[in-house]
């Protein structure tokens, strides 16, 4: 682990002053919240900040449900949000996505902000024994393209990077039209979650639209996403405690056996949390009937590109959508 100075500022303005460059790929300063991803990156020598600025105690950790919808403080933990009565009742998709993430211990430590900004699990990114990784070292190449890429994305990929964004939470949130509130030295702003993460294109090292030093202060979910029938389906090689091979977040409004409106997003397959408007449109007005669901889900494959080991995801993600819609539809 690279030596760093640990800063424990006591308020947000001090954080911003210290963290001016944080988040940039080569920044000598980084934020740490729950630390569950940052400590891994430090241990593996992937991130080497000279200065580590703790966000502990300076960010909102509240969970509120009001007429505007749901507001999650950036410092709320995965466990707190997953178990929150209001979230469980009105935004079960979020709770399910969280309960399918990591382990109880990690969920007690990890925060909302950190979850959205965790780095990819691409094993080449995390092993400095590989020199080629455009995300870690811009311009160095991508070891995954013709390497073992079973873990990698089929949607939103580029010739420079095919890494998956690993968050389950983000998949659920993007399906629910969540917005992220940010604060930087330049003031406050908010960004739809769907626009928070960038596609890799030819700059995979630039992962989000955050300005250097900007922090996430809260996540909001509009009230109209409440009370939907939903399901988070996560598929993986073992039964628990593993990142998704494929996951599907689905929330639907139904009229008897007919889908009035659907929201669908995928995890494990996209370079960012992947919303599927075309599938959603195709599902609208369809019956909860396997054939109809299947043809709508097929649209998820538009533009999908496999690289060999991950080809199976293109088929599996369609089936995951069908199954998730079926389960959501069967909920009372």
């Amino acid at each position: 682990m690279h030596p760093f100075v640990l800063e424990r500022p006591c308020d947000l303005s001090a954080v911003l002053a210290l963290g001016a460059q944080a988040g940039r790929n080569d920044a000598p300063v980084e934020y740490i919240a729950g630390g569950t991803d940052m400590v891994q990156l430090l241990q593996e020598h992937v991130r080497r900040p000279d200065r580590l600025v703790s966000l502990a105690g300076v960010l909102d950790d509240g969970i509120e449900i009001g007429p505007q919808g749901l507001r999650l403080g950036a410092a709320a933990t995965m466990a707190e949000v997953a178990a929150h009565q209001g979230v469980v009742e009105q935004f079960p998709l979020i709770s399910q996505a969280l309960l399918n993430s990591a382990s109880p211990q990690v969920r007690n430590q990890a925060t909302m902000g950190g979850n959205l900004l965790q780095r990819t699990r691409c094993p080449y990114f995390r092993d400095v024994g590989y020199q080629a990784c455009n995300k870690r070292a811009p311009g160095s190449g991508c070891a995954a393209l013709d390497g073992e890429n079973r873990w990698h994305a089929v949607l939103g990929t580029s010739d420079d990077c095919i890494a998956v964004h690993p968050s389950d939470l983000a998949v659920a949130l993007v399906a629910l039209d969540a917005t992220v509130e940010l604060r930087g030295t330049g003031g406050d702003r908010s960004v739809p979650l769907s626009e928070l993460h960038r596609l890799p294109r030819d700059t995979p090292h630039l992962e989000t639209v955050l300005e250097p030093g900007e922090v996430i202060t809260a996540i909001t979910v509009p009230a109209n996403a409440a009370g939907l029938r939903s399901h988070y389906l996560k598929l993986r090689d073992r039964a628990s405690f593993e990142f998704a091979a494929v996951s599907a977040a689905v929330a639907i409004e139904t009229d008897g056996a007919r889908i009035r409106q659907a929201r669908v997003a995928l995890g494990g397959v996209g370079t960012k949390p992947w919303r599927l408007p075309n599938v959603e449109q195709a599902l609208a007005d369809k019956n909860l009937e396997p054939g109809e669901l299947r043809s709508a889900a097929a649209l998820a494959a538009e533009g999908a590109q496999g690289r060999g080991h991950n080809d199976f995801k293109i088929e599996l993600m369609q089936r995951a959508i069908v199954r998730a819609v079926e389960i959501a539809g069967a909920r009372a």
């Binding site: 640990l6 424990r8 740490i32 729950g34 630390g35 569950t36 400590v39 891994q40 241990q43 593996e44 580590l52 703790s54 502990a56 466990a79 990591a102 382990s103 109880p104 211990q105 990690v106 007690n108 430590q109």
Partner: peptide
């Protein structure tokens, strides 16, 4: 040492956490 096995589990303020993912100073 990377949060992946659970062998380091301790209770912090009564809640289980992975001690390998916590900086001691924090």
């Amino acid at each position: 040492g990377l949060g992946q096995c659970g062998a380091c589990t301790v209770l912090m303020d009564g809640m289980r956490v992975k001690a390998c993912l916590s900086l001691a100073a924090l």
